[in-house]
């Protein structure tokens, strides 16, 4: 029983991070109708930047969010302006392949700069844990989970209360109607791509607290992000949160009761099943 409870608790904590990590992918798809295959690149880049700031300047990973967010925004907006924008009228698969090219380049750059070895960082609280009744919860996971929830609240407020948020939602709903009402659609696209990438990079900062990283880091988490976003509904914050937690729990149950090696199989199978069951409308 205690086993099951601790598996559930750890699944929930990881699941909130999954949701946060995935949200940027959903936002970009919602607004631009583009599948951001470079999402994994931004996640990985976020972990590396955080790792580098920590090992060089001793910066706490949580503080480095202040750097990864604007950096992610700038990089994302640049990719949109220089590459994605040119394909605005092409079939979605073309953009997907283009962004895959970006991912390959980033992966290669990371190999050149950091090498292929596993990198991980250690903070003063990395190994701490908190006893709650019979459960032992890891402090980094609690913190990361809390920050993810906080991120969601900030994002929800931004989308609901600010003019930019309104513009984003308008373009997501109906691009042409938004343009006719005077929303600068081009700028909204760049902003959406920027926010999506900023979310991915800051998710990388959070994940650096309990994952080690290689340049291949992004692939696994890109697929998990797809899984969460498809299950949860592309831009539905609540749905994504539930889907993230669901995936976190399902993975931990599999790892604990079946085989640790099969942890990732769960997300891939759930992803495919979710896609097929939704029978997502053509293009």
């Amino acid at each position: 029983m205690v086993d099951l409870l601790s598996v559930l608790a750890s699944g929930i904590l990881v699941g909130t991070v999954y949701a946060y990590m995935a949200y940027g992918l959903g936002l970009i798809y919602g607004v631009l109708r583009v599948v951001n295959l470079a999402h994994g690149a931004f996640l990985t880049l976020g972990v590396y930047v955080t790792w580098w700031l920590n090992t060089t300047f001793g910066m706490d990973p949580l503080v480095s969010i202040l750097i990864t967010v604007p950096l992610g925004f700038a990089l994302g907006a640049t990719v949109e302006r220089t590459l994605v924008f040119r394909l605005r009228d092409s079939p979605p698969v073309t953009t997907l392949l283009l962004l895959f090219g970006v991912w390959l380049i980033v992966r290669n750059a990371l190999y050149l700069i950091f090498g292929g070895a596993d990198r991980s960082l250690l903070t003063s609280y990395s190994l701490e844990s908190l006893a709650v009744g019979p459960l032992t919860l890891s402090i980094p996971r609690l913190i990361v989970s809390g920050f993810s929830l906080l991120g969601f609240v900030v994002l929800a407020l931004m989308l609901k209360r600010t003019w930019s948020g309104l513009a984003l939602r308008a373009v997501a709903q109906d691009r042409e109607a938004a343009a006719l009402s005077g929303v600068p659609v081009n700028r909204v696209w760049a902003v959406a791509f920027g926010i999506g990438s900023a979310l991915a990079m800051s998710a990388g900062s959070l994940m650096s607290l309990f994952y080690s990283v290689t340049p291949e880091f992004g692939a696994r988490f890109l697929l998990k992000s797809f899984c969460v976003v498809v299950l949860g509904g592309l831009t539905n914050i609540g749905g994504i949160l539930v889907a993230g937690i669901g995936l976190g729990i399902a993975e931990d149950l599999t790892a604990f009761y079946i085989h640790t090696g099969y942890r990732d199989v769960v997300s891939f199978l759930v992803l495919t099943a979710a896609l097929v069951m939704r029978r997502a409308d053509s293009d």
């Binding site: 599948v35 079939p91 979605p92 698969v93 997907l96 697929l223 797809f226 899984c227 498809v230 090696g261 099969y262 990732d264 199989v265 997300s267 891939f268 199978l269 992803l271 495919t272 896609l275 097929v276 029978r279 997502a280 053509s282 293009d283």
Partner: peptide
């Protein structure tokens, strides 16, 4: 039954699951 990017993503899921198994 999926089209375009949805099919593309589903194929990644299947292939990666196959590889791990």
């Amino acid at each position: 039954r999926l089209r375009g990017p949805y099919f593309a993503i589903a194929t990644i899921g299947v292939a990666e699951a196959t590889r791990i198994v």
